[in-house]
Amino acid sequence: MYFRLPGLDIKSVMDLTSGGSPSTSSSEDVASELDNSDAMQLVRQAVLFENIELLADLFKVNPWVWNRVDRHGRTPLMLAAHNGKLNSLRTILLLSPKSLNLVNERGKTALHMASESGETGIVLELVEIGSDPMKSDKEGHCALELAQMAGHNEVAARLIDAIQKESEDVNEAHIMLISACISGSSEAVNDILSKNMDKKQNREVIFNGRNEEDDTALLIACTNGHIEIVRHLLQFEEHLLQNHITKDTR
């Protein structure tokens, strides 16, 4: 079931992505260990009261706390996200960047929790630093769906904007990469790849385009004899090598 905003629905936004559905990952860091120790109780209080100095000290003395959960399945970052504690969230991410994409046993990230609780500022912060708005939890819901199911239309609208912008940026990166593969500019290729390789589904589009008739970067580089670029592209595995007209490989 899809929930609709005026003029846009979730399915149409999902279709902006390469697969047309929320993204999943086969190799995730999962936080599952329940921790009710005194140290964790202090961490949670520091998060909720935004006692940043205490929070930083606790993380330094107890470096394991970042991936422990409370009885609701929330890590310290998820707790901050769910409750709209922006200063705590920024502090935790500074001390433990891996917290960003950590999931709990239900497959939820901090972005999922901020979205379903309607914390617009937190959602924008998490998306800006790289949290994936199309990542699905174990029930198959992405952050956008969770926001709409909870009636948080402002959060949903901001997530739609973020998804559309990312789609436009990925399309532009594909066009620029193809141009660089034609001209033989290794510097341009390196620059494009250094900025756009964090998500597998984005890499697939950047290398191969969205449509069957789109040019593919590796084929163009091979056709034009740019060996250095070919070697650089082959560091990644998301390439198609078939000519869309002749169906030949080269």
Rank of each mutant, 00 (worst) to 15 (best):
R71M: 10
H244P: 15
E187K: 13
K165M: 10
H72K: 14
D15L: 13
T223F: 09
L89T: 01
A188T: 08
A46G: 03
Q242M: 12
D29S: 13
S99W: 05
H232E: 12
N196E: 01
L8Y: 09
S99E: 07
E168G: 00
S23G: 09
N196L: 06
G184Q: 05
R44H: 15
G20N: 11
N36P: 03
P133L: 06
S21L: 11
N62V: 05
L58P: 05
S18H: 14
M14W: 15
L95I: 08
L177A: 04
E139W: 05
I227H: 12
A157P: 01
L126Q: 02
G184W: 04
N83F: 09
D9I: 07
E53T: 15
E116V: 14
Y2Q: 11
D137A: 07
S115L: 01
G184S: 12
L240N: 15
S25P: 00
I10G: 03
N51F: 00
N62K: 05
C142P: 06
S32M: 09
H226E: 12
S32V: 00
L94S: 14
V230H: 07
S99H: 04
E172A: 14
A217N: 05
A31F: 04
N208D: 06
G225K: 01
H226F: 06
A81P: 02
G20W: 04
L100I: 11
N87Y: 11
K11L: 12
P63Q: 11
V69C: 03
H239C: 02
D161W: 09
C142G: 02
S18K: 15
E187V: 15
H174Q: 06
N196I: 02
V189T: 04
N104S: 04
L177E: 05
I227M: 10
D137E: 08
L241Q: 04
A46R: 00
V13A: 12
L95G: 07
C181K: 01
R71F: 09
S186T: 11
S18T: 11
L79Q: 01
T246Q: 02
N101A: 06
M149L: 13
E50C: 10
T223W: 05
I220Q: 04
R71P: 00
Q235D: 13
S26Y: 01
L240G: 03
I92W: 05
V47T: 02
S115I: 02
L16N: 08
K85L: 03
V103H: 03
